[in-house]
Design a protein around this nucleic acid. Structure first.
Length: 295
DNA sequence: ACAGGATCCTGGGGGC
DNA sequence: TGCCCCCAGGATCCTG
């Protein structure tokens, strides 16, 4: 899916197009259910509401309405949230249409694979309760060093799994996990609890550096992702390991490897990102032998 | 507690 | 051209 940089790009694009404008209605453009079913009762709640804010939390998009009502959108794998002229033909797999103001513009939610969701929370508190209940972790920028070290020390999971865990840090997905690990020169199968403080700090900074750069480039467009104004991202042109199996490592020229790890394809340089011998080597070896090389 | 697999979906690409 | 299989940026549930 769109990961944090893509979601941030959508939010930045949508903010000037939505804040101060009114959602006048809701049209369900398809009968197919999203991950969370749109409740007809929300139609009346939305109608006539003025948009006060557009924000991001992890991979969630929060559209603030009046009286603390919040429209909450998750793009899943293939979700697109865009403002388009109402004269533009409605694309296939468009599920929800929110006409704006006098109806000359539409806010549209399109999602091919339907892993995404759109729902309405009646108050900030209920939304916050949901995030707490689902264990959503802190934002990756300015992560407290001690918090991060403690999280890593407390788990025997591999680094790849920890980075993908939205409860540890919110917003990182498969692409940016691989790119961050390369940036930090750490092997994705390293056990989190094996990292020393210097390595933990390196990874924490690498995540922030990679995500910031990706935001500057408006995220990565692999197939379905577009920003809030329909524009594609550019960061895919700067991938150093993701999707580059067999290509030379930009640091040392060794061939980039792709292995299945934590259920996801994981790309890394076998030379720059080595697993050092440690007290947990036995366990790590077990993980490594379980890996199945793909492609 | 954690790994790993299956699941929810559609579409694109490769192999034959 | 067509068919079949595998793969994909996420999250969640289940099993061992």
């Amino acid at each position: 899916m769109p990961e944090l940089p893509e979601v941030e790009t959508v939010v930045r694009d949508l903010r000037p197009l939505l804040v101060g404008h009114h959602l006048t209605a809701v049209k369900q453009a398809s009968r197919q259910a999203l991950r969370t079913r749109w409740r007809p009762a929300w139609n009346a709640e939305i109608a006539g509401q003025r948009v006060g804010s557009v924000e991001r939390r992890g991979k969630w998009i929060l559209i603030g309405l009046e009286a603390e009502k919040t429209l909450v959108v998750h793009l899943g794998m293939t979700g697109q949230l865009t403002v388009t002229p109402s004269t533009q033909p409605v694309a296939t797999h468009t599920h929800l249409i929110f006409p704006l103001d006098e109806g000359e513009q539409h806010l549209r939610f399109r999602d091919i694979r339907r892993f995404g969701s759109v729902s309405l929370y009646p108050s900030r508190q209920e939304l916050e309760d949901y995030f707490v209940a689902s264990g959503l972790g802190p934002e990756p920028f300015d992560l407290p060093a001690k918090y991060w070290r403690d999280c890593l020390r407390a788990t025997k999971r591999c680094l790849k799994a920890v980075l993908l865990d939205q409860g540890v840090v919110a917003g990182v997905g498969n692409i940016y996990a691989d790119e961050s690990l390369f940036q930090a020169r750490l092997h994705p199968a390293r056990l989190a609890c094996d990292l020393d403080n210097a390595e933990a700090d390196r990874l924490r900074r690498a995540v922030a550096v990679v995500l910031r750069r990706a935001i500057e480039r408006r995220g990565s467009s692999i197939r379905d992702y577009v920003g809030g104004s329909g524009l594609q991202g550019e960061y895919q042109n700067e991938f150093r390991v993701y999707g580059r199996t067999g290509d030379p490592c930009p640091r040392c020229d060794a061939a980039i490897v792709c292995q299945r790890l934590a259920g996801r394809s994981s790309h890394f340089c076998p030379t720059c990102q080595k697993i050092p011998t440690t007290k947990h080597t036995k366990h790590t070896k077990k993980i490594k032998t379980n890996l199945k090389t793909t492609r």
